[in-house]
Simulated assay, not measured.
Amino acid sequence: MTVSYFALYRTPEDPADFESHYFGTHVPLVAKTPGLVDNRVHRVTRQYVGGPGYHLLAELVFESPEAMKAGMRSPEWKASGEDLASWGAMELVTMFAAEPVATDAG
């Protein structure tokens, strides 16, 4: 069963500058994480309720909970975390893991 790790970024002061570093440097570092099978990045186009304002949602999909744990112990993951801290993005992000839940959609 896959498991996802999410990074939800609040809207930065300069979205274009943020995205330049995020997509040009950070995403390629994250992509090297062992056990990562997909990196889905979504731009928030409209927020209906709640706050603060959000800009990006990254969903990092791992093969399994064990693969995610191993990936998070890797030098590649450490490098991506160091990069995140180096340009102030840690102040904008909320991170959490989640796994799919079966629902009865009727």
Rank of each mutant, 00 (worst) to 15 (best):
M1W: 07
S4V: 10
F6H: 13
T11H: 07
T11E: 10
P12Y: 01
E13W: 08
P15I: 06
A16F: 09
F18A: 01
E19S: 15
E19W: 10
S20A: 14
S20N: 15
F23G: 07
F23W: 07
F23I: 09
H26Y: 11
H26S: 11
H26T: 11
P28N: 03
P28E: 04
P28K: 02
V30A: 06
K32P: 05
K32A: 14
K32R: 15
P34M: 08
G35Q: 04
N39S: 14
N39E: 11
V41M: 05
V44D: 05
T45C: 11
R46C: 08
R46M: 09
Y48G: 13
V49K: 12
V49S: 11
G51M: 07
P52V: 02
L56F: 05
A58V: 12
L60T: 03
V61S: 08
V61G: 12
E63A: 08
P65S: 02
G71P: 02
M72I: 09
P75A: 14
A79R: 00
A79Q: 01
A79M: 00
A79W: 00
S80F: 01
E82G: 05
D83V: 01
D83E: 05
S86C: 07
S86P: 06
W87G: 08
G88C: 03
E91N: 11
L92P: 00
V93D: 06
M95V: 13
A98C: 07
E99M: 12
E99T: 13
P100R: 08
V101S: 12
T103P: 05
A105C: 09
